[in-house]
Simulated assay, not measured.
Amino acid sequence: MSNTNWSRRSFIQQGAILGAGLGMLPLISWKAPGSGDFVEFISPIDGDMLHVRDGKQLKNGVGVKVKIKPVAPGKINLTINNIQAKEESGNYTADIILKGFENKISVCDTLTGRKSTITVFYLSKLNNQYRLSVDDAIWFLKDIHINAAVYTSVFDNPFMGLLRSLHEAYGTKVHINLFYETDGFNLSQMTDKFKKEWARNADWIRLSVHAKAEFPDDPYIHAGYGEMYRDCHAIRTQIQRFAGKEVMDNTTTLHWGQVPVEVCRALRDEGYKIQVCDFNVDNDLPPCSYYLDVPHRRHINKRFIWRDNKEKIIFVKSSIIIDTVKLQHIKGFLDSYGENNIIPPYVDLLVHEQYFYPDYKNYQKDYREKLTAAIEWAQMHNYTPGFLSECVI
């Protein structure tokens, strides 16, 4: 599906209309490679990243007991990791303990010896964290560049000042995804005067790649490995130069996020093993789902996190695009996850930088209040600040 008829403005407007209707999402099943028609995994599927909400945490905290649910036809006798499975009308279950990061789930028919295996993961530190992530970001850096001789701190910049005030009030951690260039400025011009200050604040600020520039829309929809690797490397090089390696991370959100698999491979090879996006499906919004097909997008909308084991890339769904939702609807939008029994284990509160500025044509005068409302929702629901790189271990 192409996004070529979408502009950022129409995306924002349509998102505000459709975003609150989450609905119940259909399940997908997974046939492990080489399994033929022997067995399908209903829950978990290959690449699922499980956490304490998916089962019962062991008393010592080193593992979690989860229920494995395969489906298999015909007369068979299934064991799951050598534990006898319970059967009812072709549906099988067994409680399995997951320990450590990577876990193999093997289903075997003891009557024939047929065996099928998937790989899932246990995230012991993923449980009720959130972050504020900022997309389309570069204007604040241009302002710091222009005022390098005047500013004594990066927080003299109004946008950075806002982010610091949110951190001071709530402990919020902020991940900023950068363009390389905008009108009259690119990252190679950014002063390194504040490099030590960036490093001192790396416990709550991270910088990463977004795209070369805001326009055209869908800049990488037909890109190859080389183009993405080049742009990604250029941005990472400049971040390290002016802000230091301390603020760099293994997580990013790619601009528009509708790309061939080669683009995601380039990001992965440049260190971005966690790739965040909207994963739109079953609505009229642009997919923003990297290279994933509809069944896997539906699965991520239910799970919020999934790993493509073939490509060794972890995908995470944003929970809200704050600037697409009216202030009075933000808490209701986030509440709708619980109402639909789809509760995110990690909440990514996404916003775009440009709506902060009064001289921007689509300026949102309640920008600060919107961020505050989203963060307060997270706090009230017992989410604590944490970067994805700290939780997905």
Rank of each mutant, 00 (worst) to 15 (best):
K302G: 07
V209F: 15
R230K: 15
D249Y: 14
S2M: 06
P219G: 02
Q238C: 10
L22A: 09
I205M: 14
E270M: 12
C391L: 10
Y272K: 07
S10A: 11
D46T: 01
T93S: 00
Y180Q: 09
I76F: 04
L132E: 01
F333L: 08
Y272N: 01
N309A: 09
L207G: 08
V150E: 14
I105N: 02
K59C: 09
T4R: 10
K312H: 10
K75P: 04
T4C: 10
A266I: 09
K104Y: 15
K195C: 08
L78H: 00
G63V: 02
Q328C: 03
E390W: 11
P287Q: 02
K331L: 06
E311S: 04
A85R: 00
N186M: 10
R206C: 11
G55Q: 05
R368A: 13
G271Y: 05
K65M: 13
L162D: 03
R200C: 08
N81C: 12
R114G: 12
A149M: 10
T253E: 12
T384N: 11
E353M: 12
C391M: 13
K212Q: 08
R200H: 13
D284K: 15
Y229W: 14
V66G: 00
D109Y: 05
I313Y: 10
I144R: 06
L50V: 03
N5T: 10
K370Q: 10
G63P: 01
V347R: 05
V71N: 01
P216M: 08
L18K: 13
P73T: 02
G21M: 12
A85Q: 00
R230T: 15
R164S: 03
C232K: 08
A373R: 02
Y291P: 03
L349Y: 06
A378Q: 06
K326W: 07
I42P: 01
T253I: 15
N340Q: 13
F304K: 00
I221V: 15
G15T: 12
T324F: 13
D192V: 04
G171I: 09
V351L: 12
I17C: 02
G36D: 12
G386Y: 10
K273T: 14
C108I: 15
E227C: 05
L285I: 04
S336A: 09
E311D: 13
D348Q: 12
A202N: 12
W198E: 12
G55L: 01
Q13G: 06
Y290D: 04
I97H: 02
A223H: 08
Q14C: 08
A223Q: 05
D156F: 06
G55F: 00
P358T: 07
H255G: 05
N3F: 01
D359L: 13
N3K: 05
P219N: 05
V325S: 05
I12Y: 09
T79G: 00
D143L: 11
D203H: 03
K365E: 06
I42C: 07
G61D: 00
V209S: 06
T152G: 13
D95N: 08
K370D: 07
G338F: 12
A94I: 00
V66N: 01
L292F: 03
H381F: 04
W204C: 08
N91M: 06
K196V: 15
V66Y: 03
E353S: 14
I80L: 00
Q364A: 06
R265C: 04
F41G: 01
K173H: 07
L207R: 07
T4A: 14
L285V: 07
K273C: 08
V281H: 05
G23I: 03
K196G: 14
I105A: 02
D54A: 01
E181D: 11
I45Y: 00
